[in-house]
Structures are given as structure tokens and as C-alpha cells.
């Protein structure tokens, strides 16, 4: 009995130590790196986003019968925040930085004849999963200029595609030829990157202290840049404003 308690005690101590060490090591690495946060806004009135007629695919049409899906070229939140803007560090990263490819695999889902998300930001060689949640076949047709093009069907219930891009490219248009209204973008950049959320806000993690050029890219309005300085242990802020045409 006594020995068993002892053993359990030693084991839990070991586990605790291990967990502590892990947390510590993460803190150590994060301590030296900063963060950039910010908001992207749209000045002016957003253009009218046309409703999409999905009558060709009766399943999707029925699915959206009550709330017709509209275009997603300019998606503005209630606070004027601009969604789906890719923000990334375009200049100033040390050559050593960003060498580590994130192990997290973002999902690129086809659901209700829409791409979810509409825009995805990826690191070079970062794997992502293409899935089909619809009971109909889709084809995924990215049309890159700096990466090899591919075009593959994904029947309902098929295994997800596990794919990646080898070269930097902002941004690769992706379309489904079977459902021509399905349209999305994949941004492939080296290093920290984020896509603005429904309020237009974004966070770039793991940015080491230094001076950078930050780029925000939006599918309709193009790219904007600004300089930003990240100091150790202090998040920097960078806000962008796009003008409606």
C-alpha cells in the first residue's frame, strides 16, 4: 500500500514536471516574439452583393431557400470591419524565421455549394484538408500562376484531400467548375499570416521583435502595406482601411 502510494506520487510528480517543462518551453519561445493585432475597415458603402442563383443544383438551392446566398467579394461586419482580408508580413522577417511549417491543418470545406472559409491563409508547404460535406460532387480547381495547377473532383463521402502549396502566392483563385458560383481564395505566404474575422480584426502571432512591412490583401480592393515595429513582449497594432470604390 505504502509503496503503491509512493509510486503514484512519483508518477504524478513526473507528469507535473513534464507538463511544466512543456509550458515553460512554450512561454520561453513566445516571450521573445511579439504579436501584431489590428482591424481592417471599409470606408464608404459596400457594393451590392448579388444573390446567387443555385437552381442548377437543386439540393443547394433548397438548402438556402430562406436565405439566398450572396457574393462574398466584400463582406462587411456591423461595425464596418472588413472580413476575409489576408494580413501578412511581406518584408523584414529574418531569413531564419518562419522556417517551421505549422503542423495545424486548416480545413477547406465545401458545404451548401459554398467554400467555407471563403479565404484561407497558408504557410508554404503547410498542409490543408479539402473536404466535401455536400451530397453532390464538387471539383476543386485552383488556378495558381506560381504553383502547379490542379483540378480534381471530390464525390460525396470521399476522403479529404491532403494538399499543400510549395511557392508563395497571394492569392490563388479557387473555383468549382460544376458550380461556377463557388469561388474562394488561398493565400500562400511565408511566416505569420491571418485572415480578418467578421469584425475585421486579426492577430499575427509569433512575430519576433523588429521592423516590418505588413500587407493586407483583399480580393476586390487589392493590397495595402504599412510599416510596423514590434517590440519584445509588447503587442503592436496595425489598422487598415480600404476605400469602397
Amino acid at each position: 500500500m505504502k509503496t503503491r502510494n509512493k509510486l503514484a506520487g512519483m508518477l504524478s510528480a513526473l507528469v507535473l514536471a513534464a507538463v511544466g517543462a512543456l509550458m515553460l518551453s512554450r512561454n520561453v519561445s513566445a516571450a521573445g516574439e511579439g504579436k501584431i493585432t489590428g482591424t481592417v475597415k471599409l470606408a464608404g458603402t459596400a457594393p451590392h452583393q448579388r444573390a446567387i442563383d443555385m437552381s442548377k443544383e437543386p439540393y443547394c438551392q433548397k438548402l438556402h431557400a430562406d436565405h439566398p446566398v450572396t457574393l462574398e467579394n466584400v463582406v462587411v461586419g456591423s461595425n464596418g470591419g472588413l472580413q476575409n482580408v489576408v494580413v501578412y508580413v511581406s518584408e523584414g522577417l529574418p531569413a531564419s524565421a518562419g522556417g517551421q511549417v505549422p503542423s495545424e491543418k486548416p480545413k477547406w470545406d465545401q458545404k451548401g455549394c459554398q467554400y467555407i472559409p471563403h479565404v484561407v491563409a497558408l504557410d508554404i508547404n503547410q498542409h490543408f484538408l479539402v473536404t466535401n460535406s455536400d451530397p453532390t460532387s464538387h471539383n476543386i480547381h485552383p488556378i495558381p500562376t506560381k504553383n502547379p495547377q490542379w483540378n480534381k473532383s471530390q464525390p460525396p463521402g470521399a476522403q479529404p484531400f491532403d494538399v499543400s502549396w510549395a511557392n508563395e502566392e497571394v492569392s490563388i483563385p479557387v473555383k468549382c467548375n460544376i458550380h461556377p458560383w463557388m469561388h474562394g481564395w488561398m493565400a500562400v505566404v511565408k511566416g505569420p499570416t491571418a485572415v480578418s474575422d467578421g469584425n475585421g480584426s486579426f492577430t499575427l502571432d509569433n512575430v519576433p521583435p523588429g521592423n516590418y512591412t505588413l500587407t493586407a490583401w483583399q480580393e476586390t480592393y487589392g493590397a495595402q502595406t504599412q510599416k510596423v515595429t514590434v517590440a519584445a513582449g509588447k503587442p503592436a497594432t496595425a489598422d487598415f482601411t480600404f476605400k469602397a470604390k
Binding site: S55, K56, E57, T136, S137, N139, N151, S153, N177, I178
Partner: peptide, 11 residues
């Protein structure tokens, strides 16, 4: 017309 030929339709 290509891979989606079987599903190319309208009403």
C-alpha cells in the same frame, strides 16, 4: 465538355 459534363444543366 469536361469533368462536369454529366451535371451541366439548367431549367
Amino acid at each position: 465538355c469536361g469533368l462536369g459534363h454529366y451535371n451541366m444543366k439548367a431549367y
